[in-house]
Measured scan of single mutants.
Amino acid sequence: NITNLCPFDEVFNATRFASVYAWNRKRISNCVADYSVLYNLAPFFTFKCYGVSPTKLNDLCFTNVYADSFVIRGDEVRQIAPGQTGNIADYNYKLPDDFTGCVIAWNSNKLDSKVSGNYNYLYRLFRKSNLKPFERDISTEIYQAGNKPCNGVAGFNCYFPLRSYSFRPTYGVGHQPYRVVVLSFELLHAPATVCGPKKST
């Protein structure tokens, strides 16, 4: 009989979030998941669920729940959905087409922007091929755009693959930082360890 609440607040209220290319994953298990708490945590810009209804979450049980978190800019949030393409979905964080879970995003301009520009958040701009779903690539190998090998040196047709967002508070919403948490629900042929409040007794 599990009584402890799932530590969603640790994920959502973390002081620092990860850069999207090096997104963070927390496995959540053996706890009571009260998803209604999430609705009250922040004024969400996005709370979209796929393959599951957000209002039914509190009635369900899962084997595992994974919470992935990272920062992107406002106009990239739409890429965090099944079947999307674009720089983020292709080279940084890719959801599977049959994704079961929820994408939660909110504006973090007050936390993640600086007047002089916050350069701490990076994204991958160049990659030889698209990522597979939930693949994480943290390599910093020089990207070869031409025929000549780069031998690890940046220059003509040889690019450092990561680029930094420079978040400034005066930017338009599309270029402001957004914190994203992706909850993916895993149903294996194994005992369910993460249940809503109704199912945990």
Rank of each mutant, 00 (worst) to 15 (best):
T193R: 11
A67I: 09
G146S: 12
D98R: 07
W106P: 01
H175T: 10
H175R: 13
R127P: 03
N4W: 07
R163F: 07
V20N: 04
L95N: 00
S116T: 13
R124F: 03
F185P: 00
T15N: 08
T201C: 12
L57F: 08
R78S: 15
A81S: 07
C61N: 13
N24L: 02
G51K: 09
G196W: 08
P169F: 03
Y66H: 07
T63S: 14
V52C: 08
L60S: 11
R136D: 03
L188M: 13
N92C: 03
V182S: 00
F62D: 07
W23L: 02
K128G: 11
D112Q: 02
K94R: 08
S139R: 07
T3D: 08
A22G: 06
K26Q: 10
P96G: 05
N107L: 02
Y121P: 05
I72C: 06
D59L: 07
D9T: 09
V32A: 07
F8L: 12
V182D: 00
N120F: 08
K128R: 12
R27K: 14
S113H: 06
L122S: 15
W23M: 04
N58A: 12
T140S: 11
V52Q: 04
P54L: 14
N4D: 12
R73Y: 05
K94C: 01
S166P: 07
L131M: 06
L57S: 05
Y35H: 06
V173H: 12
S29F: 08
Y178C: 10
L183V: 02
E186P: 06
K114T: 15
K128E: 13
V182W: 00
N130R: 15
N58L: 06
L38V: 10
K148W: 10
L57H: 04
N151P: 07
C102F: 00
E10C: 05
L187K: 12
L125E: 15
R78K: 15
G152M: 07
F62M: 09
N92D: 02
F8R: 00
G74T: 01
S36I: 03
G152L: 06
S164H: 12
I88Y: 01
G74K: 07
P133F: 02
D34P: 06
P54R: 14
D90A: 08
L162G: 03
L122P: 02
R27Y: 09
C150D: 05
L41K: 13
V180T: 02
V103K: 00
N92I: 02
T46Q: 15
V194T: 10
S116F: 11
Y91T: 04
A145R: 10
L5H: 10
C31Q: 06
I28D: 01
L111H: 11
V194D: 10
V180P: 00
K198V: 11
R124Q: 04
V182P: 00
P82K: 02
T15G: 05
C49A: 00
R136N: 04
T46E: 13
K56H: 11
S129A: 12
Y91H: 08
K128D: 12
T100H: 10
K132L: 11
C31M: 04
R25L: 02
S166K: 14
G117S: 11
N13M: 09
N40P: 08
T15H: 09
T55N: 14
